[in-house]
Simulated assay, not measured.
Amino acid sequence: MSTRKSIWLVIFLHVYLVLASDSDPLQDFCIPRSEFSSIFVSCKNSSLVTIEDFVYSGIKSPGEFSKTGFSSIPVSVSVFPGLNTLGMSFVRADFEPGSINVPHYHPRATETAFVLEGKIYSGFVDSRNRVFAKVIEKGEVMVFPKGLIHFQMNIGDSRATILGSFNSQNPGIVKIASAVFGSEIEEEILIKAFGLNKKELAKLKKFLHTS
């Protein structure tokens, strides 16, 4: 391949990646004909679509709480077909006093977090390792830029609830500790990267597996 062609290929790939996002819908809505399983789905005939396709009742109450006192109910097109092709999804998160939403990020979406109840210490870390965090209370909203690590902790004396929304119907989630210590990364790499010994590493993996 010539140098000129290589340059144009690099430019094309760069532009493609910069512009990549949930595509704009080409019609008013697209309710999947069957259970959502891929991005290539056929739509119901519009005459068969009803108001029930656009209403979801699954977040009226908290979900099941973990041992650490945190509960989340993600709402995507897989459970709410009316979201299909609209470029959005959301989550209900509930916190017992002192519980946390562990550091994580969403590779395909920016998130806004609206506090429904309680007081939440909430923040994110930018690419220069600066932490932007403060306590947000009922009625306040915080935004977490796409791809940046963020976290939350209930610092109040009662249960707290957040409604998070995403500008993607499939934002994805990567929990930092689980991705690093709960995956199949070679142990020798983790031991050298974090200054751990094998006993400490085993303890961390056991904690993540049971929490």
Rank of each mutant, 00 (worst) to 15 (best):
I7S: 12
K134Q: 13
S21H: 07
R4D: 13
G195D: 01
S127T: 01
L116W: 03
T161Q: 12
D28N: 09
K138A: 01
S89V: 12
F80R: 06
Q152Y: 02
T210N: 12
C30L: 06
G98L: 05
A20V: 11
V143N: 10
G147R: 09
S183I: 14
G182E: 10
T85W: 05
F36G: 06
K203W: 11
T110N: 05
R128M: 03
A113S: 06
N154S: 04
H209E: 15
G139C: 07
S76F: 11
K60P: 05
T85M: 08
H106S: 03
I136F: 00
S2R: 08
K138T: 03
S89N: 12
I189F: 15
S46P: 15
I162L: 14
S99H: 00
D157W: 08
P62H: 07
L190S: 00
A177I: 03
L13Q: 00
V55W: 09
E187A: 05
K192Y: 10
H150W: 09
P74G: 07
R33S: 13
S165D: 01
V75W: 02
I191F: 04
I155P: 05
F36Y: 15
Q169W: 00
E96Q: 10
G87H: 05
Y105T: 00
N45E: 10
L163K: 02
M142D: 03
V41M: 14
N167C: 08
V55E: 10
A177L: 15
V41A: 10
M1E: 09
P145G: 06
N170Y: 09
N154G: 05
S122P: 00
S61H: 10
P32M: 09
S183G: 08
M1V: 10
L116V: 05
L196M: 04
K119I: 09
F40I: 08
P74N: 13
S6M: 14
G147L: 14
I73N: 05
E140F: 06
K44D: 04
W8F: 13
M88T: 08
S2N: 11
I176W: 02
V143P: 08
F124I: 01
T3K: 12
K198Q: 05
V91F: 06
G87L: 01
L9I: 11
E140Q: 14
M1D: 10
F207A: 13
P62T: 04
E137G: 01
S47E: 14
G63I: 12
V180L: 15
I73A: 08
D53N: 15
E96L: 05
W8A: 09
S66F: 13
S37R: 02
K60I: 04
